[in-house]
Design a protein around this nucleic acid. Structure first.
Length: 151
DNA sequence: GCCAACGTTGGC
DNA sequence: GCCAACGTTGGC
C-alpha cells in the first residue's frame, strides 16, 4: 500500500531544486528517534513524499518525490567532518538511517503553511499538531488536495 | 533575532 | 524512572 509523507528540509541546506538537479538522493541527517523509527519501520519503496521547505521566508510544500530505497545506515553519522556526525554511533550498530528519494516534481505553485493553517480541509495535517517532526504522515485526501493545488 | 514548544541528557 | 536543565527547531 502506497503511503503519503511530508519530509521537511531547510532550502538553504537542501531544496527541491537541489533534488531536481541530482535526480535522486539519500535523505541524510535525520537525528530524531521518532522520525528515525518512521523511516525504518514505515517508509516503503513506492511511497509518495511531499517536500516541505522550513525555516525560510515562506514555509511551504514545494515539490514531490518518490521513495526508491528503504532504510539503510546513514553514512554521515560516521563522518567526523559531517554536521550530522554522531560519535555515539558505530558501524556495528548504526543508530541513524536514511531512505533514498527520487525527484518527481517541482511544483509551479507552492502551498504555504499559512494556507494550510487557514483551510479546515488540512486540519489533520501533522504540520499543525506536530510541527517539529521532520517525517510526517499525510492523510490521502490531504495529499490529493495538496497536489491538485500545487500543479 | 526572539521565544515557545518540544526533544534530549544526565544526576539522583 | 523522574524531572530539571539544557539544546534545538522553526514560525514569526
Amino acid at each position: 500500500m502506497t503511503r503519503y509523507w511530508l519530509f521537511k528540509t531547510e532550502p538553504d541546506t537542501y531544496s527541491i531544486d537541489d533534488l531536481q538537479d541530482e535526480g535522486r538522493c539519500g535523505w541524510e541527517g535525520i537525528r530524531n528517534y521518532q522520525a528515525r523509527n518512521r523511516l525504518r519501520d514505515e517508509v516503503r519503496a513506492g511511497d509518495q513524499v511531499l517536500i516541505y521547505h522550513s525555516s525560510c521566508a515562506v514555509p511551504a510544500v514545494a515539490g514531490l518525490a518518490k521513495v526508491v530505497g528503504e532504510a539503510s545506515a546513514d553514512p554521515s553519522q560516521f563522518d567526523p567532518r559531517s554536521p550530522y556526525f554522531d560519535p555515539k554511533s558505530s558501524p556495528d550498530t548504526p543508530r541513524w538511517v536514511l531512505v533514498e528519494l527520487e525527484w518527481q516534481e517541482t511544483f509551479p505553485q507552492q502551498l504555504p503553511l499559512k494556507t494550510i493553517k487557514e483551510d479546515p480541509a488540512f486540519a489533520e495535517m501533522e504540520l499543525l499538531s506536530r510541527g517539529r517532526l521532520s517525517i510526517q504522515h499525510v492523510p490521502g485526501d490531504c495529499f490529493r488536495r495538496i497536489v491538485k493545488f500545487c500543479r
